[in-house]
C-alpha cells in the first residue's frame, strides 16, 4: 500500500459538554478508497467533516488531537482553512447543486480560485464532467438549470463540481443514500475510477456498498473507531466482537 495521505491520532470532538468522537486514530493511504461504516449517530459523518474542518461552522464544537494531511496538522493555529478545503473536496449526502446552470455549477470552484478565461473554464468543465461520467448526458445542455437534472445526475454534477478544483482528497458523505439503485451503481463505478487520481473517503450506511468499492474499512460505534483494516479482512474476519455483530446484522 502507498504513502499515507491522512494521519489522525487521538482525535476527540465535543459538542458543548457531549463528546461525539472518542480518541480516534487512523491512517488513510493515498489513492485508495476508505469506507467508514457504522450505525447512524456513530460519529462517522462527524469524523469525515473533521477532515476538511466543516465542523468549524457548528457552534460550541471543539476538536482536539492531531489530523495530519501530508504531514501537516490541519488544526494547527494559522491553518488556511480555505486552501485546505480546496485540497480536500467534499460531496454531500443530498445532491446540492446551486440553482444556476450546469456549467456555472462546475465552474464555480475554478472561478473562486481565479480562473476567468472562458476557454480554460470550458476545458475544466468538460474534463470534470467527463471525470464524473456525466459529460455525455449533458454536453448539449450545459446552460440549462442544474435542478432540471435527475437526482443521480445531480449527484454526479456535485462530484464534477468537487473535482473541478482538482482536490487531492474527495470526502463523500453517504453520496448515494438519496438515490435510486441505478444511479447508485453508476456512482459506485465512478468512485472506483476516481481512486486512481484521488484519495477517496466515503461514509456509507450500506455495508454491501463498502464491501464493493472500498480498499479499507473503518467501523465506528458510539463515537469510537472500533476497528479498521483492509476491507476484505473486516468483512470476513473482524477482530472485534462488536464489528462482527454489526456486519452480521445483529444490530444497527
Amino acid at each position: 500500500m502507498s504513502r499515507m495521505k491522512f494521519q489522525i491520532s487521538n482525535l476527540n470532538l465535543y459538542y458543548g459538554p457531549t463528546q461525539a468522537l472518542k480518541d480516534v486514530s487512523i491512517d488513510l493511504p493515498e489513492s485508495s478508497v476508505t469506507a467508514f461504516i457504522g450505525p447512524s449517530g456513530c460519529g462517522k459523518s462527524t469524523f469525515l467533516r473533521c477532515l476538511n474542518r466543516m465542523n468549524d461552522f457548528i457552534p460550541r464544537c471543539r476538536v482536539d488531537g492531531r489530523v495530519l494531511l501530508d504531514g501537516t496538522d490541519i488544526y494547527a493555529p494559522g491553518t488556511d482553512v480555505i486552501s485546505l478545503r480546496r485540497r480536500v473536496g467534499m460531496v454531500f449526502q443530498k445532491p446540492n447543486p446551486f440553482p444556476t446552470s450546469i456549467f456555472d455549477n462546475v465552474a464555480y470552484g475554478p472561478r473562486l480560485h481565479g480562473v476567468t478565461d472562458r476557454s480554460t473554464l470550458e476545458g475544466i468543465v468538460r474534463q470534470s464532467l467527463e471525470g464524473a461520467a456525466l459529460w455525455d448526458e449533458v454536453r448539449d445542455k450545459l446552460s440549462s438549470p442544474a435542478l432540471s437534472l435527475s437526482g443521480g445526475q445531480q449527484q454526479r454534477l456535485c462530484i464534477a463540481r468537487a473535482i473541478a478544483v482538482q482536490p487531492e482528497v474527495l470526502l463523500m458523505d453517504e453520496p448515494t443514500s438519496a438515490l435510486d439503485p441505478m444511479s447508485t451503481a453508476r456512482i459506485e463505478e465512478l468512485v472506483r475510477e476516481l481512486k486512481t487520481k484521488y484519495t477517496v473517503i466515503i461514509v456509507t450506511h450500506n455495508m454491501q456498498q463498502a464491501a464493493r468499492i472500498s480498499d479499507l474499512t473503518a467501523f465506528f460505534l458510539l463515537g469510537e473507531m472500533v476497528e479498521a483494516g483492509p476491507t476484505q479482512d473486516i468483512f470476513t474476519s473482524p477482530a472485534d466482537r462488536r464489528t462482527e455483530d454489526y456486519i452480521t446484522g445483529r444490530f444497527g
Binding site: 476538511n52 478545503r85 454531500f92 440553482p99 473562486l112 456535485c158 470526502l171
Partner: peptide, 18 residues
Amino acid sequence: VPDDLRDASYAMGATRWE
C-alpha cells in the same frame, strides 16, 4: 436558502463573502 448549498460552497474553499 438551504444550508447544504452553503456547505457545498465552503467545502470548495470559498470564503464566507464568496
